[in-house]
Structure formats: structure tokens, C-alpha cells
Simulated assay, not measured.
Amino acid sequence: MGVRIRQADERDRDQVVRILEEAFHDDPVSSWVFPDEDHRRAVHGRFLGVFADVTLAGGRVDLAEDGTATALWLRVPAGAPEEEDGTPARMREAADPGNERAELVGRLTGAVHPHDRAHAYLLMIGVSPERQGEGIGEALISEVLERCDREGLPAYLEASSERSRRLYERLGFTFTGQTVDLPDGPSMWPMWRAPRAG
């Protein structure tokens, strides 16, 4: 399908957050972090805004030109980080300071994130609910994966649902074998994709 994609910048921040908020409103992980739906509606955008800010500052945000989808990518170097990632604490502080889960989800995924090889990290991808299942997300991801293949760069992500896990498997990602199990909540599936030879 012909999805027109452009790279987003700071001027697109609100649109990126809106897409993510709509796409993840009913996601199992978001529902675990913010169990009360009215409360989730009030704070979810601030929570997701931290992801957008981090990626706009140091990564790549792709945006479907029709405003229906976005993908947030970070390039992660090899080697353990020299200092603790403060992003989980920022997520909690920005969205819901009294909610431990708003920080815990980032700490748990960070604990299993691989650091032995440089890789492209698909931090988040969101497609507007009314357009899901049309191949838009796959088109967004495929462009970056093709570049990864050319550069010999692996890719990594955490799938937050069985549905998304199946999509990523079709794109060549494989489950690393260790789930991230949220306390009394859903599991997430860390997934790795080795670059494909041309």
C-alpha cells in the first residue's frame, strides 16, 4: 500500500502524542498502568509525551502524512549505559506522580533491554484505531528495517499484545525468550531482529 511517510519534528509533537494516545488507549499495558479509564484519558497524553520528547530530541519519529500513524525509533549503542536512564522517573513525574506503575513499566523493560550490540530500538508505533489492520504500521516499520538491513543493524522492540507480536514476527522479529511480566498485569514480549542479508 502507498503510505506517504515523512520525518516528524518538534512542530509535530502534539499530533504524534494524539496518535499514540488514541492507539494505546485500550492497550493492555496502558490499561495496567492507568486502570481507571477516566483517569487514563486525563493523564495518558502526558505519559506518552515523554516518549515523544525523548525521541524527538535524540531519535527519529516517522509520521504518516495523513496523520494516522507514527513510529518512534532510537539508535542504541553497544555497551551498558554509563548512567541510569531517568526516563521512567520522568514518565511518572510528568503523568501521575503518585502512580508507581507509571515508572515501573519503564524500569522493567529497561532491565531486559539488550546492550551487547548496537541496534535500532522501536520504542513505540501507533496507528489510529479506525485505520488499524490496513498495513499502515507495517509500511512505517518496513522503511526503517530496510535501512537496518543495508547497514547490518539489528532491531529491537517490546510487543505489548499478542496481536502486535504476530505483526512483528511477520517482519522478522523473534521473541528473546524472556517476557516482561507486569505485577498482576499483562506480559510484554521483547523481540529481536537480526539484519537480513541483501
Rank of each mutant, 00 (worst) to 15 (best):
I136Y: 00
R117K: 14
L108S: 04
P129R: 05
I141V: 13
R147A: 10
S128E: 13
L140H: 01
E134C: 08
V105M: 14
A95T: 12
P97D: 06
R131D: 00
H113W: 02
E100M: 11
S142Y: 05
M124L: 14
L104S: 13
G126W: 08
V127Y: 01
E143Q: 15
N99I: 06
L122G: 04
I125D: 05
G106L: 03
E138C: 03
I141W: 02
R147D: 11
E143I: 10
A120E: 09
D149W: 05
G110M: 10
Y121W: 15
D96T: 01
E134H: 10
A95Y: 11
L122F: 05
V144R: 12
R90A: 15
S142L: 11
G133K: 05
E146K: 15
V127R: 00
V105S: 10
V112C: 00
A118Y: 02
A95H: 12
A118D: 13
L104C: 14
S142V: 07
L145G: 05
A95P: 09
E103G: 06
E103N: 04
G98F: 04
R90Y: 05
N99R: 07
L122H: 06
A111D: 13
C148E: 00
C148M: 02
L108N: 04
R90C: 11
E93V: 07
L104M: 15
H115R: 13
S128N: 11
V127P: 00
N99C: 08
L108F: 07
E146F: 13
A118K: 12
S142G: 14
G137Y: 01
H119E: 08
I136W: 01
L123H: 02
V112L: 06
G133Q: 05
M124C: 08
V144G: 02
G106M: 03
R147P: 07
M91D: 12
L145D: 09
P114E: 14
L145W: 14
A118P: 12
E100S: 13
D149G: 03
S128G: 07
E93I: 05
R117G: 09
L122R: 06
A102M: 01
R92L: 12
Y121G: 08
D116S: 15
G98H: 05
E134S: 07
N99G: 02
M124A: 12
E146I: 13
G137P: 02
R92D: 04
L122P: 04
A102E: 03
V127D: 01
E138F: 00
P129F: 01
N99H: 03
E93A: 14
T109H: 08
V127C: 01
E100C: 05
